[in-house]
Design a binder for these strands. Sequence first.
DNA 1: TTGATGCCCACGGAATCCCATGCTAGAAAA
DNA 2: TTTTCTAGCATGGGATTCCGTGGGCATCAA
Lengths: 158, 158
Amino acid sequence: MWQQFTSSFFNKVDTKGRVSIPALWRKALELRNAEGNIVLVPGFRDKNCVEGYAPDEYQRMSAAVSRMHPSDPNRRKLEYRLMGRALPLQLDDNGRIVLPKEMRDRFDLGGDVAFVGAGESFQIWSRARYDEFIAPLDDDEDFDALAAMPWDPPGAAP
Amino acid sequence: MWQQFTSSFFNKVDTKGRVSIPALWRKALELRNAEGNIVLVPGFRDKNCVEGYAPDEYQRMSAAVSRMHPSDPNRRKLEYRLMGRALPLQLDDNGRIVLPKEMRDRFDLGGDVAFVGAGESFQIWSRARYDEFIAPLDDDEDFDALAAMPWDPPGAAP
DNA sequence: TTGATGCCCACGGAATCCCATGCTAGAAAA
DNA sequence: TTTTCTAGCATGGGATTCCGTGGGCATCAA
């Protein structure tokens, strides 16, 4: 559970494109891989933000793609979007990464950015865009997605 | 994972036909084979670009072809396209390779080219052709390929 | 000669490393 | 309770290394 990415953080990107990865998540990353490795994938599942994965989770996904038959046209598409854009990075000894310039431009990641936990992955948003995005979700909506949640009653077998 | 070819890079082919292999991938190649060997196959899976493989991966593929029955007509075709056109190269000590002239002409590989990671392999495109090719994939609204991805829930057996 | 190929060195800009500085929260002391 | 101290964290700046790129020579073939 502490291996998961939870909570939200708002950090700053400096002029060189550096940002601190939230300390809580650095601990999560350490539990998953000793070296401070991390994989960023821009706009994979959500096209308005950059997604971050621990190496093991990224490998799970890319392995799934690699299992598809080479002639499958969907494999090709997934390769371009997942492998073709994935950026393996490692934290410096201050716990920071540098966001490449193209990524900063495309997702408006200068100044304030939001780190949003999503369990097995996390997202990096432009602060402004995130606020805009999250407001309607917070405002009353009769959250019917809850009904779609798979439900194992407490105490059931793992 | 550091053995994989991820991300994209845009380098220049000079007047002699030389290009730098992205430094990140040189490290991946070193992890797979000590000497800086690499195999280029023009238009194998995708006819608009040159594909690059680490020697071990290339051998995996050619071994698969060799296992086909000699009378299988597809075997002959695969032999022509995979073995018959493969070009084993090795990096110079600046990390560059020389693209043969026929390849440059056929795939328009002069000036700006794109190196696109595809996990076990990578592709070399003319920059212009790649931009043209990738745009519609980016604009693809609800990325249906994602639905086609095989999915093992986290925690499932490897 | 002409042109292709391989090898070496040189340069500029960008990425990376290393050290410094506030800030804050929580512990320790009064 | 209030005050002080301290350790961890986010952030900034300077210095250094790395990497992509271009050019110069030799060597060899046509």
